[in-house]
């Protein structure tokens, strides 16, 4: 059940990383509203299909608008919402299967346009809702319900992919640190362009990676999550690329290109080209 709708019966499993991501998104939207004095109604959360997409029904407190669409197509829908009304603060929530498998074709075009939406990817390395199939970020050789002899594909490194596609803001985080995540999401909302906050969000049922993320230094197990060095400069592409290439789960803002205009700015810059293009004038161009 959700706080606002006792009849709603979808539940995340106990300990699911998505709880932390939800909290982080709530923080970020609240912070954004206070900072920019905008109403909650200006926030639109566009969700894909999967455990992650159900976040849009589980938000607590004052409700934003939501669009819970079809598998893999959250980005195209967000393109329409944002360009339909550029004043809206548009957030996409998606999972690794939704975003990096069926939906991957949509990342590069938004990056090329620098579409001004903020995407929060909940990466649990597995298809949870359909019960444990391998996803693009599942490790190679992993045995899952759909890879009985081990996964035969290499795992995708999402951060390298985003860098290669030209995403202008790339952050990486961990679902157990919602305050930090909220900060990355808020900065993504403030970034005038395409932002992705990629979050390691473990699935306690099919792919529980909490132990690996935290590691166990006393036993010599390096944590998968690692803090960016204090002097990391996200505006330096070469540094960002090295962070992305290293793998694991870096914690922080990996890349931030502040030099490109947002898509809506480019569109509004040609608004004057529409002068004299009222319907009557356009129709008269066909006069015989």
């Amino acid at each position: 059940m959700s706080a606002k709708n006792p009849e709603y019966d979808f539940k995340w499993c106990p300990g699911c990383g998505d709880f932390g991501v939800r909290r982080a998104l709530e923080f970020a939207m609240q912070d954004y509203m206070v900072k920019y004095e905008t109403p909650m109604a200006n926030n639109v959360v566009v969700a894909g299909i999967g455990c992650s997409g159900n976040l849009v029904h589980l938000l607590e407190g004052e409700q934003p608008f939501g669009f819970h669409g079809i598998h893999g197509r959250a980005l195209p829908i967000s393109l329409g919402v944002k360009m339909g009304n550029p004043d809206l603060n548009v957030v996409v929530v998606a999972g690794d299967g939704d975003f990096l498998s069926i939906g991957m074709e949509h990342i590069a075009p938004q990056a090329a346009r620098n579409l001004n939406v903020t995407t929060v990817v909940m990466d649990n390395g597995v298809y949870g809702l359909t019960k444990g199939q391998s996803s693009p970020t599942t490790e190679a050789e992993a045995v899952t319900s759909s890879t009985p002899y081990g996964k035969m594909e290499a795992a995708v490194n999402p951060l390298e992919l985003y860098m290669a596609m030209g995403v202008s803001y790339v952050a990486s985080g961990y679902s157990s640190k919602p305050r930090d995540l909220a900060s990355y999401i808020l900065q993504g909302m403030e970034h005038p362009g395409f932002s992705i906050v990629h979050v390691a969000s473990p699935c306690t049922t099919y792919n529980d990676t909490y132990a690996q993320l935290k590691g166990n230094p006393s036993k010599g197990i390096e944590p998968m999550a690692w803090a960016l060095p204090d002097d990391h400069d996200p505006t330096d592409r070469a540094q960002a690329q090295r962070v992305a290439d290293r793998g694991g789960v870096p914690l922080g803002i990996v890349y931030h290109d502040t030099t490109r205009p947002a898509f809506e700015a480019r569109i509004s810059a040609i608004a004057d080209r529409g002068e004299g293009k009222d319907v009557a004038t356009l129709l008269s161009a066909f006069d015989l």
């Binding site: 980005l75 829908i77 329409g80 919402v81």
Partner: peptide
């Protein structure tokens, strides 16, 4: 696919 997604989002946005 992107085209239909975009007009879905825009129709939703008014």
């Amino acid at each position: 696919i992107e085209a239909i997604g975009a007009i879905l989002g825009a129709g939703f946005a008014g």
